[in-house]
Amino acid sequence: MPLSQSERDHADDLFSSAKFGDTQQKKAALAAIEAWAGQIPERLAYLAELEAADRAVDTNLAALRSRYPRQVDNRTPRPTEPARTARLPGLWPGIALACCAMAMTTVWVINPVQSRQDMSSSIGQQSSLDLDDGSHVLLNTNTAIRFVNRLRSRELTLERGEALFSVNHSALRPFHVYAGTAEIRDVGTQFSVRLLDSGVSVAVLEGQVSVTSSSSAPPALLTAHEALRTNGTAVVPVTGSQAVSAMLDWTDRRLDFNATRISDVIEELQRYRAQPIVLADPRAGTFRVTGGFSIADPDQLLKTLPSVAPVTVTVKPDGTAVVASRR
């Protein structure tokens, strides 16, 4: 059923506080708006109308300025002009409304920063962080992020590595993850993002995310237990539950391989080891490995390789591990 005027007035007051209040008032107003809107379509629609009105005013700022031009009259008023002056007050409500609308739109569209957070993890380590918006992020090995908490949005940049996001969903403030040329937008979910040399990989545990591979590409929607990879321009779906699961095993500090070439195993394992891992001969890289391994101790996995493939592993004094085929 349609919203009552009191409901609209209440939403307007909260909306205004979220824009013009101090830091605490803004946080309280945003939380109150979320609680008020809930999942009620009429209330969500009205909030969307408020945002659309702000955008419309901003789009038409030039027209407003031309409609209410600022004029300076240096003439000395003459005694015969009171009737003309008497008509001016009728213009002030329109001028005041236009100025107020422009001010509101400017503050809302500028989208000021409320807080910033930076965090990184070292090679072989995982780190967790509670974000200022109530979301949580788990950083995998050698990962760095930068989070900007804004009035209207939340923006996180994955500078390197891989992270799992548990997002505190907000209909009013979308959560964006930027990784390379890709943009991942939360639609209420838990998901993992890895920055690759050629693009990104995204896997969803719960809910949905929208993934855009580049500014010119249409978004792709992922739901729970789905994944994809991008190459900077295109989106490539990851098929098979086992393949999707393997992309998320790192959250349990595991690596799972299914007939994976040792060359690829080494490439993955190198992410968790500071010292280099070297293939002594091309043949050694062609053997395949199947099984699950802990990433808590990369050297233990290396020691396991000779028992699952016809290779030898030698660790030099400087820590370099050399994988060679058995002669």
Rank of each mutant, 00 (worst) to 15 (best):
V107W: 04
V209R: 03
G161K: 01
L47R: 05
A227P: 02
L172V: 07
V322G: 01
D133M: 08
Y46F: 07
E7Y: 03
D13P: 05
H225Y: 10
V244F: 04
D118S: 15
R8I: 12
L64F: 07
A227F: 01
A321P: 01
E206F: 06
R185N: 06
I123T: 14
R326S: 07
V235T: 13
R288N: 10
K27F: 12
Q125N: 13
T290Q: 08
T181H: 09
H176L: 12
A28E: 15
L88R: 12
D264P: 07
I123G: 04
K26Y: 06
G188H: 06
S307A: 15
R70K: 13
S127M: 12
A98S: 11
D58W: 15
H225P: 05
R261F: 08
S4G: 14
G94Q: 12
K26C: 10
I110L: 15
P112Q: 10
I262H: 02
E49Y: 06
P41E: 06
F15N: 01
S16E: 10
A321F: 00
V109G: 03
G90P: 04
L269C: 03
R271Y: 03
A182G: 00
F15Q: 03
S214V: 04
R271A: 02
L158D: 00
S153C: 07
P276L: 05
R154F: 01
V57C: 05
A103D: 09
R84K: 14
A31V: 11
I184S: 00
N258E: 14
L88V: 11
S120R: 09
G90E: 14
Y46G: 01
D256G: 13
G134N: 12
I33D: 00
T189S: 13
V107A: 07
G94Y: 11
L97I: 08
T23M: 09
V57M: 06
A321I: 01
L248M: 08
L195S: 01
I266V: 14
Y178P: 04
T260E: 15
R254W: 10
L64V: 07
A217Q: 07
V202I: 03
R327A: 13
S122W: 09
A45N: 09
T230A: 00
S122C: 10
P219W: 03
T251L: 04
A324D: 06
A28D: 15
Q114I: 15
S121W: 00
R65D: 13
R326Y: 02
T286R: 14
A86L: 14
T80D: 15
S170P: 04
L228I: 06
D256V: 15
W108T: 06
D264R: 13
P310F: 05
Y272S: 00
L196P: 01
A144Q: 11
D9P: 04
F287G: 06
V236L: 14
R70D: 11
A324M: 02
A163Y: 02
Q39G: 13
V137K: 03
D130F: 11
N168M: 13
T105K: 04
H176Q: 10
L221K: 10
A52L: 12
F15P: 01
P276W: 06
E51W: 08
H176A: 09
K26G: 07
F165V: 04
E268M: 11
R67Y: 09
A56W: 12
V244H: 03
R116I: 14
R254L: 15
S192C: 05
